[in-house]
Structure formats: C-alpha cells, structure tokens
Amino acid sequence: MVDVSLRIVHETRYDYGVPMGYGLQRLRVRAPSGAAQIVEAWDVTITGGSQAARFTDQHGNESELYVLTPGASEFVVRIEGSVKPLIEDGVVGEHDGSAPLGLYLRPTPLTMPGQAVRALSESIGTELADIHALSARILEAMPFDTSVPANALAAEDVLQRGAGVCQDHSHVMIACARHLGLPARYVTGYLKLNDREEQGAGHAWAEVHIPGLGWTGFDVSNGYAPDTRYARLATGCDSREAAPVEGLIFGEPQTTLSVALRVEEAAAQQ
C-alpha cells in the first residue's frame, strides 16, 4: 500500500481590472474519491461570486455555477486539500457512473478525427502495449512545447501543427483511441513533478478503456502512466467538459489570470 498523500494548494485568480457586471464561472473543482484516489480533505473557497447552481454531471463531476458579484473586479478560486492516490500503473479499472461507456466513443468538436489522426492510428492494435506505443508516437509527432497558444484547438489541428502541451496531447490520444474503437476520456488534475513543488499550472491526461483492464491513464506529455504522483479533479469527453474553471464574461475586461499551485508529498494519514 502506498503511504504518501499529495497536499495541494491551488489558487486561480482572475483579475478583471474593472468592476464587473454580469458574468458566470463554472467550476469542477471537487476532487472525487474512487478507485484512483481517496480524498482526505478538500476545501474550496470562492471570492467574488455567489453559487447559482450545483449538480453532478454525466461524468460524475460535481459541477458548480457561480455568478460574479456585481461590482467585484476579481474572482478567486482557492483549493486546499489532500488526496491519497491509490494506483501505481495508470489502471483505474472498470467503468462505473451513469454515462454509458459508449458515450466515450462519440467524437466531440475538439476530438474529431481527421486525416492526420487517422494516419497516426494506422496499424495500432487495442492492447495496452499498443496504446503505449501510440502515446510515444504522438509525443514524437508533436513534441512538448509550452510556447504554443494556450487556447484549446481540435486534435487534428494540433497534430498537424506538430507541437503541443498536455491538453493537446490528451486530445490527440483521445481522438486516436476512439478512432480505434476504444472509449477514451479527458482527465484534469495535478501532477507532483519530481524536482519541484511549485507548479505552473494544473495537469491533464487521457484515459483509454482497454479491454480486460478498463480505464487506463496515459500522460502522453511526460510518457508516464499516472501513479501516486497524480491527483484527479474532473473527467469529460474533452477539455471543455473537464475544465476545472470555465467562464463566460460579458464585456471585454482586460483579464489577468494568475495561478499559484503547490503540490507536495506528505506523510499519509493512517
């Protein structure tokens, strides 16, 4: 049994520069307990908004909608929690939840396969080793590059561009897996990098449903199978459905986004 927990302090701050009128933020920031992890403590503090709705979505995420406080010029989401990861090899296991597994075969606008996706998936099988090979092939075709624009683009486009970050790699993995007939989904969360505790941003990876194994994670960007360094927040068919914070702002404020994220290992609570 693993005997470490991940302690996470994550603050996302939108500074609008001007007092805001009407605006919405949708949050998926309640880490779930399940086969992959046990959530030991989890506190979310919101500044600058009031809750308008809360529900469990089709992927099992706790989804919350916030309306910006009229006149406020910032919106801050502060997460403080501790998670005990339960898996070492990326294998989360059998599907459960209200959504049928078949839903994860359905292409979304961000994961619609095109020529490049089809070519990349050529002669790939559906065994675990095949998907690992696919993962390596994706990273080779589009090396990790943080200089690409941050907005979400379709898998086909980023693959043709030949460079990307974890979001892009995950979209391509999902598009390829679905093209191969394997259900696939997008996971957002945190990764404790080996050499540091302060992180620039949250993380994302893909999960593919492999016959016999069930949901199995692939962190294409790092070439890892998600293990005890990973903590998950939300799941979806693509990044849009799994985004921890998704906003809709009216007007054109000069928004400055700043993220402070610290992920550290802590002795597990027995």
Binding site: T56, Q58, S98, A99, G102, L103, R106, C237
Partner: peptide, 17 residues
C-alpha cells in the same frame, strides 16, 4: 443499436441521469 443513439448528434449527453 447503441451507437445509433449515442453517436447521434441529436443525443444530448448533458441529459444523462
């Protein structure tokens, strides 16, 4: 057939559950 429904544009995943 399951895929006829789940892969249909008219099927609305946010309504699941």
């Amino acid at each position: 057939p399951e895929e006829l429904v789940l892969n249909n544009e008219a099927y609305c995943p946010p309504m699941i559950g």
